[in-house]
């Protein structure tokens, strides 16, 4: 799926995630890019919320990382791709981390499973000690 995302059209943006305000920047930029890709209405808020979740995870669990935003087109259908990646400690048990309510940070444990529900496509890969990459997409209805 990452490769597919790489084929994205013009319009790619990288937002470094290093401090709290970067989370806000990332979701604002994500909203803007979604508008450019023709998405609208509540989808914009759903995307912004999903970006906020994965960006927050970067800060909390990995310290720093980046969000890459891309416009997509597949079979004449447009959409946006969000890649969140870091080189932090990684996740040992991904199925566990994807469970509602599971958290090692004493928070709600809804970020990853919630982001998956908010978006159309969701993929997470991780290697312990090497970091996490979350790739997610949302398509125009």
């Amino acid at each position: 799926m990452v490769d597919e995302a790489r084929e994205g059209l013009e319009g790619e943006l990288l937002v470094p995630i290093e401090r709290d305000p970067d989370v806000v920047t990332a979701r604002q930029k994500g909203r803007e890019m979604a508008v450019e890709a023709g998405l609208s209405g509540s989808d914009l808020t759903l995307i912004a919320t999903a970006i906020s979740e994965v960006a927050r995870n970067i800060l909390v669990y990995a310290g720093h990382g980046e969000i890459i935003l891309r416009q997509l087109e597949r079979n004449g259908r447009r959409g946006v791709c969000v890649i969140a990646r870091d080189e932090g400690p990684g996740i040992q048990d991904i199925p566990l981390a994807m469970q509602d309510g599971y958290s090692t940070g004493r928070s709600l444990g809804l970020g990853l499973p919630g982001a998956k529900r908010l978006m159309d496509d969701f993929e997470i890969v991780s290697e312990v000690g090497k970091g996490v990459t979350v790739t997610m997409m949302k398509w125009r209805r």
Binding site: S42, T45, L46, T49, D100, L108, L110, P113, R117, L118
Partner: peptide, 13 residues
Amino acid sequence: SAEVAQSLVTLGV
């Protein structure tokens, strides 16, 4: 807003 409420419900809050 309806959008924020929908997002929070989808997240599972």
